[in-house]
C-alpha cells in the first residue's frame, strides 16, 4: 500500500514536472506546435479530471460530458462574436472573466437541470439519458445559423484577461496548466471530504447509504453539478486554444473520448485522467507520425492493389482503436494500475 502510494506520488511529480517545464523548452526551441499540443492535452486533462469525479469516484457513467465542455466553449465564442459583430448586447463581451463566469454558471445550470432528471435512472438508462441530453445540445447548436450551425464559429479574438495575453501560446499554456493543478487538488479535496466519502460509499452500495440516512440522490446531484461546472471551465480554455468551436466538440464520440481518457488512465485515481489525456494526445499525434514514416513500406502493395497513392497516416484511427481495446481488456485499473504494480 505505502509502496503503491509512493509510486503514484513519484509518477505525479514526474508528470506534473514535465508538464511544467517542457512547453517552455519547446518554446525556446521555437517549436510552437508542441506547445499547442501540450495545451490541448492539459485542457482535455481538466475535462477528464472533472469526469473522474462522477465516473470514477461516484460510479456514475455519464456519457454526455462533452456537452459541458461545448457549452463552456460557446460561452466564449458567443460573447466574442457579438462583441465584434453586434447584437445580443447583454452577453456581448470580450472580457475573459465574464466568459469563465458564463461558462461555469451555464454548464452548472445545465448539469443541475439534466442531472436532476438523469439521476432518477440507473445503469444503462443513466448512460443513455446523459448521452441524449448531450445530443440535444449538439443538435441545438447545429440548428443555430447565427453561430455557424454545423460549420462552427471562428473566434476572432481571445478572451481578454488581466495580466496575461491568451494569444501568447505560453501564457495560455500556463493558465491551463495552473488550472489543471487546481482541478486535481480540488477533486482530491472533494473526494477525501465527508461529501466525498458519501459519494464513494454510494458508488459501492447506494442502498446501504440510503438506509444509513443519506439522501444519495442529492449528493450525486451536487457532484454532477461540480463536475459539469469544471468541464464548462475547461471548455472556455479550449475555445481560446482552438480559436474555433463547432457542435462536433459536443458529439457523443467526443464524450466517449473523455470516458476513454479516464478509463485508460485509471478510474478513481488522482492522476489517471491526466495520464489518459496525455496518452490520448500523444497517440493521436504519434500514430500519424509513425504511420507516415511507415508509408514507403506499405505503399507499393497498396498502389498495386488499388492503383492510387496511399496516405497511410489518415488511417491512424485503426491502430488507435486496437490499442484502446487492448488497454481496456488487458490493463486492469488503467495506466495507474500499471504504475501501482498490478494491484486494483
Amino acid at each position: 500500500m505505502t509502496q503503491g502510494l509512493s509510486r503514484s506520488t513519484v509518477a505525479t511529480v514526474i508528470l506534473l514536472g514535465l508538464l511544467a517545464v517542457l512547453p517552455a523548452v519547446f518554446m525556446a526551441m521555437d517549436n510552437e506546435y508542441y506547445v499547442g499540443l501540450a495545451t490541448r492535452l492539459v485542457i482535455l486533462g481538466i475535462a477528464a479530471t472533472s469526469l473522474n469525479l462522477i465516473l470514477g469516484y461516484g460510479g456514475l457513467i455519464s456519457f454526455g460530458h462533452a456537452a459541458f465542455v461545448g457549452i463552456g466553449a460557446y460561452a466564449v465564442g458567443i460573447p466574442v462574436h457579438h462583441s465584434l459583430f453586434g447584437g445580443f448586447q447583454i452577453v456581448a463581451s470580450n472580457n475573459g472573466l465574464f466568459h469563465v463566469a458564463l461558462a461555469v454558471v451555464i454548464s452548472a445550470l445545465f448539469a443541475l437541470i439534466t442531472g436532476a432528471i438523469c439521476l432518477r435512472t440507473k445503469g444503462v438508462y443513466f448512460i443513455m439519458i446523459t448521452m441524449a441530453f448531450a445530443q440535444m445540445v449538439y443538435y441545438l447548436f447545429i440548428s443555430i445559423d447565427t453561430y455557424g450551425a454545423d460549420d462552427g464559429l471562428v473566434i476572432y479574438q481571445v478572451s481578454q484577461v488581466p495580466l496575461i495575453d491568451l494569444s501568447e501560446p505560453l501564457h495560455l499554456y500556463y493558465l491551463a496548466f495552473a488550472s489543471l493543478v487546481a482541478a486535481i487538488l480540488l477533486v482530491r479535496m472533494i473526494v477525501n471530504s465527508r461529501f466525498g466519502m458519501v459519494l464513494q460509499g454510494a458508488k459501492g452500495n447506494p442502498e446501504r447509504m440510503v438506509t444509513m440516512g443519506y439522501n444519495v440522490y442529492r449528493y450525486r446531484l451536487v457532484a454532477y453539478v461540480i463536475s459539469g461546472a469544471m468541464a464548462g471551465y475547461s471548455g472556455a480554455l479550449l475555445a481560446n486554444y482552438e480559436g474555433f468551436i463547432s457542435p462536433d466538440m459536443m458529439d457523443w464520440a467526443q464524450s466517449g473520448e473523455f470516458m476513454f481518457m479516464v478509463i485508460l488512465g485509471g478510474v478513481a485515481t488522482t492522476l489517471g485522467p491526466i495520464l489518459g489525456s496525455t496518452l490520448f494526445t500523444v497517440l493521436e499525434e504519434g500514430l500519424q507520425i509513425v504511420m507516415d514514416w511507415m508509408e514507403p513500406a506499405v505503399e507499393p502493395a497498396y498502389v498495386a492493389l488499388f492503383g492510387r497513392d496511399l496516405e497511410f497516416e489518415v488511417y491512424w484511427h485503426l491502430p488507435f482503436g486496437l490499442i484502446l481495446i487492448f488497454a481496456v481488456l488487458f490493463v486492469r485499473g488503467g495506466i495507474m494500475g500499471l504504475i501501482r504494480g498490478g494491484k486494483d
Binding site: M189, I190, N192, S193, R194, F195, G196, M197, V198, G201, M209, M212, G213, Y214, Y219, V222
Partner: peptide
C-alpha cells in the same frame, strides 16, 4: 470507513467539502 460513514450519517448533513473525513 464503513462504520465512520454510519457515524457521519448522524450529522445534520454531509455537504462538507474541505476537511479530509479520514
Amino acid at each position: 470507513d464503513n462504520i465512520a460513514l454510519a457515524v457521519q450519517a448522524k450529522d445534520a448533513h454531509s455537504f462538507r467539502f474541505i476537511r479530509s473525513a479520514r
